[in-house]
Design a protein around this nucleic acid. Sequence first.
DNA 1: ACAAAAGTGTTGCATATACACCCATGG
DNA 2: CCATGGGTGTATATGCAACACTTTTGT
Lengths: 224, 224
Amino acid sequence: MNKDNPLYKNQGIHVLTSLFTVEDGKFKVLLIKRKNEPFKDKWILVGGACYNNETTDDAMKREMFEKTGLKNINFEFFNIFSRPDRSPLMRMLAVAYVGVIDCKKVKILRETTKTKDADWFQIDRIPELGYDHKEILEKSIEYLRKRIFDSIILKNLFPKTFTLPQLYNAYVSILNKNIDRRNFRKKMLSYNIIEDTGLYESESGKKPAKLYSFSTEDNHKIIL
Amino acid sequence: MNKDNPLYKNQGIHVLTSLFTVEDGKFKVLLIKRKNEPFKDKWILVGGACYNNETTDDAMKREMFEKTGLKNINFEFFNIFSRPDRSPLMRMLAVAYVGVIDCKKVKILRETTKTKDADWFQIDRIPELGYDHKEILEKSIEYLRKRIFDSIILKNLFPKTFTLPQLYNAYVSILNKNIDRRNFRKKMLSYNIIEDTGLYESESGKKPAKLYSFSTEDNHKIIL
DNA sequence: ACAAAAGTGTTGCATATACACCCATGG
DNA sequence: CCATGGGTGTATATGCAACACTTTTGT
């Protein structure tokens, strides 16, 4: 490879995460408003450019922290987007991730030099997005739905403990279709990925639900 | 993104394919010998650098043709490899593909400015490889084995027609384990991805096997 | 007739689905 | 005692794994 060939120059790497949550029974994604050109004032997914001395995973962690103040989020890489004209300034290969988080953990959405604002948007009410982020978001949703029963991709959606009805409602919101409650419960418990804490929620007016937590053990049968 | 930030500069994209075949019952991968530094005289996977005006898919097609003379091969993207030091000259993100082909179609393995030689290597007799291609190859094998029953990733392994025993032997070679012949046959036929041509092979000394071809119809139940 | 490989069916087991009633709580 | 939502069990269907014998051909 001849480094001076102009066809090899001016290439960069974008890292992006479709960061999802479920809030009030609504499936939502975190979007950030751009402050500068290109795509000034357009909403986009969380992310940015990868430095040449870091892995894409590290870049994504850094970008997530810089743009939202969030740390220790689990992402799952799922695809790349390589259309040469997907970014106007120069060729930027997009490396796309999916993440899921408890929206209550997102207290501060920092204003940075590059972002004006950040907010959760319902999946069926997405505004016009900058870059090719609409397409990436659609593929992210598809990926999340495909993986939701084969991985513990939702493990950061809740506080330490949660009830099975909460988990059930999250699945229904994300998949946007009904699931049999009894079969869901059986399936989840058979995976051995959640364990009974012995505690109960204290809501009023109804039977208290058991509190579960995600298991740290690796004795589950689920495919990660 | 400030284009002049040195941390954004000197980045490139490698596209790579682990191109597999089954020859004489042996699971093999195509390797190419490098002519120049870095990794002069080391064997590596087929691939090269992506131009800034092409998708990675297009780059991979171009590289495959330039290095091996092969066209119309189906690849399946499976992962990226982003360690910043994986290539010595500068940061090169690797975009990795898996492909499977009939080794008899590979007649001419062209000598190019960058390759001295090319050959099929048995999976259990892989020489030392340049770059991080050993790791990429291992992950490719893992991916192929995981996908082999959920996709028609093998559809280019054979000439237009093939027998079920041939297909069975390919699966056994690639997975490196025994499969029940009867169940394999039932599974393959139930997918509706292959169809009976009405023809028979003409071997001697044994019962002739039916010739099948991969179906062009989309009425199969297999997940692609 | 024999060697060599192709072709074929059934049973049991595990998993997924469909479905309806009782229970515990707070008000 | 009632309204609300939590929790449970069974019967059926489907998919997968285990397993052995018969058929066709060329020699």
